[in-house]
């Protein structure tokens, strides 16, 4: 897998450009674990990049590193032409107004003691934007555009709303500062299926309306495919494959991507529900395997896979994979 593969980086109007991102955490006195081990990617204006992977792959950490919470151990994060890692604390705070985040737990994302409308008003107050009337109007407008009644919002606290509504309120709060980029960290994972659809549709609509760029982090591949233009697959802190959504699902090249797709339970009894060719348990990020990190569980692994880390190579059509033996004739989805 690519630790230092940049073949997939593009030219163009880039809102975000990440290079060689490394995020380390201290686990105990002497041990550190690298949640993210050197990934690079970029996001063009108006694009939705989906980042997908299972637990321990580092996708959430990546999202938070972009927000500098916590700041990454090394690597470069260029947002709208500014190198975030070199900015002073104050400048980083200012940059935050342009990059917002939506979290997984809808209810815990809101202060339980405050009315929901106040929570949405908060960012405007922090940055003293506009007059009191202007702020009030803006908040009401945005609440309406996410489908929440502003009057009800003014008198109700988060626990009086459902999970889906709380999530929409969080979206409203993220929009109020008119950001360029919104990072969505598993925003629908905690919601019921029918509510999930509401929030996904809402994000698509708002993206068009406000001209947003999104980074959508999730473990549910079908959800990610639905909302993303481009999808990156991560495994154990590394990037395995990156391609346009339709292409990734039609022609998955990396064995891990293939296994991932095979494992998804499709709501179709006629589909083949037997397990794809994956072996064993995900290893711990503390002691990752040598060479290609996926090799111990890969059905196609050979010697080189345990010795040399594969770099991202082009498969054509803006489709890149980090593998010594990409699936040449990938399984096309029925």
């Amino acid at each position: 897998m690519a630790g230092t593969g940049k073949a997939h980086l593009r030219d163009g109007d880039k809102v975000l450009s990440i290079e060689d991102l490394v995020v380390e955490f201290k686990v105990s006195r002497n041990k550190t674990v690298k949640a993210v081990s050197g990934i690079s990617f970029d996001v063009l204006r108006g694009e939705t990049l989906g980042i997908v992977g299972e637990s321990g792959c580092g996708k959430s950490t990546t999202g938070r590193a972009i927000m500098q919470i916590p700041p990454p151990t090394s690597g470069s994060i260029v947002f709208e032409g500014n190198e975030l890692t070199e900015l002073s604390h104050t400048k980083v705070r200012e940059a935050r107004t342009q990059v917002q985040m939506i979290f997984q737990d809808p209810v815990s994302s809101l202060n339980p003691r405050r009315s929901v409308r106040d929570s949405v008003l908060e960012p405007l107050e922090i940055w003293s934007r506009g007059t009191k009337e202007e702020r009030s109007r803006l908040v009401d407008e945005i609440l309406e555009s996410v489908g929440i009644d502003p009057d009800r919002a003014a008198e109700s606290k988060p626990h009086q709303f459902s999970g889906g509504q709380c999530q929409r309120i969080s979206v409203a709060r993220a929009l109020v500062l008119d950001p360029t980029l919104i990072i969505c960290d598993e925003p629908v994972s905690a919601l019921d299926v029918s509510v999930q659809a509401q929030v996904l549709n809402l994000l698509e609509d708002l993206k068009k309306k406000f001209g947003l760029t999104l980074v959508f982090i999730a473990h549910d591949l079908a959800v990610v495919k639905n909302i993303s233009d481009r999808v990156a697959v991560m495994y154990l802190g590394k990037l395995c494959e990156i391609a346009s959504s339709d292409d990734l699902y039609a022609r998955p090249a990396h064995p891990y991507t293939n296994v991932l797709l095979d494992s998804i339970p499709e709501p179709d009894p006629e589909a083949d529900h037997s397990v794809g060719k994956i072996i064993g348990e995900p290893p711990s990020p503390v002691a990752p395997p040598s060479g290609c990190r996926f090799h111990p569980r890969c059905a196609y692994a050979t010697d080189i896979c345990s010795q040399e880390e594969p770099q991202l190579r082009s498969m054509g059509d803006d489709h890149f994979v980090a593998c010594h033996h990409p699936v040449e004739t990938p399984v096309a989805l029925s």
Binding site: V99, S108, S109, L110, P112, E122, P123, I126
Partner: peptide, 26 residues
């Protein structure tokens, strides 16, 4: 550890503000 504190930080709130407006009431 709850996400609304993290959210406040991403919105640009300074520590003092977070402590007084987010944590203290709770």
């Amino acid at each position: 550890e709850r996400e609304f504190v993290l959210a406040a930080r991403t919105l640009g709130a300074k520590n003092g503000r977070i402590i007084i407006r987010e944590l203290l009431p709770n």
